[in-house]
């Protein structure tokens, strides 16, 4: 670290903080999971961008309602954001932030938790692309995919892809009434809690 200035590796403070979380040996403290859901403009990690992120923490088999995160991003390239979401953002008076700010806040929230999402690989790749645009490295968090957990529980072939709605139907979880990132993150968290118990993780 002392040679950072020499190597020209002038990393921003938040990234250093984030990286340092993975240095120390934290194996003995309570495992924290962060379940998140992202609204995106599309499915191409290189071309498409993040519209909003909702995330919620799970510690010791319970969703910590206060451990909550939601952010909306300003869009420059695209203007495909749904009017419904616009209305929601307006109603709740939430401000939108630029992508860099969103990444800083998200990493500050996620810390070294295990990241959990539905079909998570695409989301992780989108975040990595956003980090790359900031000249930073890739995400370091361990990840878990609810789709993969579901397949494992059902002992289905790896190739099956179920949507979040299909999964919540299969597990008899009420879908969120609002299709927002945070609402979907909450549903994903319930799915995760169920699968976690069933699989004994």
């Amino acid at each position: 670290m002392a040679f950072d200035w020499l190597t020209g590796n002038n990393l921003p403070q938040f990234w250093k903080n984030y990286i340092s979380l993975f240095d120390s040996d934290n194996s003995n403290h309570h495992k924290r999971y962060v379940i998140f859901y992202m609204e995106k403009t599309g499915l191409d990690p290189k071309e498409d961008v993040i519209l909003s992120i909702g995330a919620i923490g799970v510690t010791a088999n319970a969703i910590e309602v206060g451990d909550f995160f939601e952010i909306f991003l300003i869009q420059e390239q695209f203007d495909t954001q749904s009017p419904a979401l616009d209305k929601y953002v307006k109603e709740t008076g939430t401000e939108k932030v630029v992508e860099a700010e969103a990444m800083i806040q998200f990493l500050n929230f996620a810390k070294d938790a295990i990241l959990v999402g539905h079909n998570i690989n695409l989301d992780i790749e989108m975040i990595n692309q956003a980090l790359k645009r900031l000249d930073l490295g890739r995400l370091k968090n361990p990840i878990m995919d609810t789709n993969a957990l579901y397949l494992r529980w059902k002992e289905l072939a790896d190739t099956t892809q179920a949507t979040l709605d299909e999964l919540s139907d299969a597990l008899k979880i009420k879908k969120s009434d609002r299709h927002t990132a945070s609402g979907n993150a909450y549903v994903t968290a319930l799915i995760f809690l169920k699968l976690k118990t069933k699989l004994g993780i």
Partner: peptide, 14 residues
């Protein structure tokens, strides 16, 4: 109060 609450899932007979 709700912000400091938890959501817990219980399997049957848990």
């Amino acid at each position: 109060v709700a912000e400091q609450s938890k959501v817990i899932y219980l399997e049957k007979n848990q």
